[in-house]
Every structure is written in C-alpha cells, then in structure tokens.
C-alpha cells in the first residue's frame, strides 16, 4: 500500500505536468479586450493538481496518511487475479465490438464471465448470453432508435431492420 501511494502520486504528478504543458498550446495569459486566454483555466488548474500531488508526496514521506503507513499489499494475489481477469474480459469485449459488434461481443462476454468466473450451469449461462442481446436490441434499436455498432455482423441485421424499422 505504501509503495502504491507513492507511485500513484508520482504518476498523477507527471500527468499534471503534461496537462500544464498541453494547456500552453493556447494563450495562458491575459489578452487585452478578451480577458484570460483559452489555456489559462486548464493551465492554472493543472498547476494546482501538480502542487497537490507534491503535497501528497510530502505527506507520504512524513507517513501522515493510513496508506503511507500500511504494510498491507495494494492487491493480494487472489483479488489481483480476479480483478485482472475481469478487466481483461471487459477490454476484450469492448475491443471486439469494433469487429463483431455489440451483438457478437455480449454473448461471448456472458459465456466467459458466467461460465468461467462464476461457474454457473450452461443453461443459466446461455439464457443470459442469448437473452441479453435480444433485450438490448429491442430496447435500444427498436424503442429508442439508437443504432449500436455491429461491425462485420451488420449484413445479418438487414432482415431485422426490414421487419421492425
């Protein structure tokens, strides 16, 4: 926990410095007749971010916060595996939307999550893997008229569009 606190503060400080630099693409000073330049607001705020990161680091050295005194691991191995698995599955689902679309990605996500993480029966898993995309389709595409990305599977939906839209 102690190391994580320091690493997080350093990463956020670097990000703040990057934001400061990025803000200077627009004028950060006073422009006559126009007031503060477009970069001023984000520039001074990211300066504040950097300062608060330095403050967090200073408090880390003085061991003020509970995290900076804690010897507990930031992640124990069990939760690291679980959270890592879930995060990878989510990333894979969102990534595959570009390719096989929402209606291809959702069933795979349910099968992975319910069968391999949750160890549910195939019956339960397939009920959700099939039910969720059907409900999503009728709710978003038919009721709300919001077209969700379909990637390569787009042609499969032409008959459905003809039928419902």
């Amino acid at each position: 926990m102690r190391r994580a606190e320091l690493i997080m503060a350093i990463v956020l400080a670097i990000f703040s410095a990057y934001l400061m630099w990025k803000s200077t693409e627009l004028p950060i000073g006073w422009i006559p007749e126009e007031g503060p330049g477009g970069g001023a607001f984000p520039f001074w705020l990211s300066t504040g971010m950097l300062l608060s990161c330095l403050w967090i680091i200073w408090r880390w050295f003085r061991r003020v916060t509970p995290q900076s005194r804690s010897n507990l691991p930031y992640f124990d191995s069990q939760s690291a595996t679980l959270i890592g698995l879930v995060a990878v599955a989510l990333t894979a689902m969102i990534g595959s939307i570009h390719w096989i679309g929402v209606y291809g990605a959702i069933p795979f996500f349910f099968i992975f999550y319910m069968k391999f993480i949750g160890r549910h029966s195939w019956l339960q898993t397939s009920a959700f893997a099939i039910g969720a995309p059907v409900v999503t389709f009728f709710f978003f595409e038919i009721m709300l008229h919001i077209t969700l990305p379909k990637g390569e599977t787009e042609p499969l939906f032409y008959p459905l569009y003809d039928l419902f839209l």
Binding site: I117, L148, P149
Partner: peptide
C-alpha cells in the same frame, strides 16, 4: 449471485456509455 449481476451491469455500462454520443471513443 454477483457473478450474474456484474456482467449484466457491465453490459449496461458499455451500451449506456455508447448511446449519448454514439462514439466508441467514449466507451474506451
């Protein structure tokens, strides 16, 4: 079990994050 609720909510988040702007950039 939470292993049923969690994927349902994740899917809602992804679709809900896409809907307002219809841009995959926002989902990422």
């Amino acid at each position: 079990p939470f292993t049923i609720l969690a994927p349902v909510i994740f899917v809602l988040c992804v679709v809900g994050g896409y809907a307002p702007t219809q841009d995959m950039h926002d989902v990422w």
